[in-house]
Amino acid sequence: MSEIADKVKKIVVEHLGVEESKVTPEASFIDDLGADSLDTVELVMAFEEAFSVEIPEDAAEKIATVKDAIDYIEKQKAA
């Protein structure tokens, strides 16, 4: 697993208070990890802070799963 994936997973575990084993790439923040809409706003902010990236609102709305987050951040970092 990439360094970015590791860090994303850690942030999700910390913010949503879920077990690490549940944070699979396919896991949906809202459907599988118990987040509500405000939790996802906070999560995106935590990603922005941790990876020094800007995630505009329209992009943030498309980040529904752990993999969505990892892919988006990897793309930003590669650019």
């Binding site: 405000l38 706003v41 906070e42 902010m45 922005e48 802070e49």
Partner: peptide, 10 residues
């Protein structure tokens, strides 16, 4: 300000 928690008000 853009980093303010969405949970600040509630």
């Amino acid at each position: 300000a853009r980093r303010l928690s969405p949970f600040f008000i509630p």
